[in-house]
Design a protein around this nucleic acid. Structure first.
Lengths: 107, 107
DNA sequence: TAAAATACCTAGCATAACAAAGCATTGTTA
DNA sequence: TAACAATGCTTTGTTATGCTAGGTATTTTA
């Protein structure tokens, strides 16, 4: 899979996951693999820096949490700003996708 | 429009245009704008280097041509290698698109 | 108890689209 | 006819981003 394709979409995917419930990095990697039916196998070196960046931008927030019987994990949750950004970017993705398919259906 | 989204798709779009008939760079820029209904407005500084790169890889070939009554233009045509690459990459795009939408439809 | 899986981190790299410039020619318009 | 817009091609440097490749520590499994 051409990795360039991913650029510009990882943010939306992460924000969309967190829209439902807080999650931690390692868990997201597993979840993306499942949801995408194995297409997306993010490396940790890919995901963690993105999470840090999203937090720096104020789109997500983190907190260390230890549920009983579990090990300590850093949970991320989406912020209000994150939700509105997700909406904008999702619309953008729809438009983009349509445009590409318009061009590719040229015969 | 987030420019990162484009990464990994410009090659396919160009190859797909050239699949039908040879074209020159400036003409492609106009054509992309039309086909995408204004979403893609490539700058020359974007398109020309990509064309050079595709030629270097042997996916397209160029020739200077002057049709009667027209100015000199550098026409590009797709190669056999270009056609097979286009097919591979189109499939890749389909899979990618499906995977993203699978992730984004998670609720 | 050794290995694998979980869970987090970071420095440096490669790639690709873009901004911003330049040059030459052709068409339009005041 | 002179000025300007549009056409047509080129290149240098910037920036963003996912990945490579390394690291640490804990927990589970064979």
């Amino acid at each position: 899979m051409n990795k360039e394709l991913l650029k510009g979409t990882t943010d939306i995917m992460i924000l969309n996951l967190l829209k439902k419930e807080p999650m931690y990095g390692y868990g997201m990697i597993k979840e993306f693999a499942i949801l995408s039916k194995g297409t997306f196998k993010f490396k940790e070196g890919t995901l963690y820096p993105i999470l840090h960046n999203l937090e720096k931008k104020g789109l997500i927030e983190s907190l260390w949490k230890q549920n009983p019987g579990e090990r300590k994990r850093k949970y991320y949750q989406i912020t209000k700003k994150g939700i509105s950004t997700l909406e904008e970017r999702s619309t953008e993705w729809e438009i983009f996708q349509q445009a590409i398919n318009d061009v590719l259906s040229y015969e």
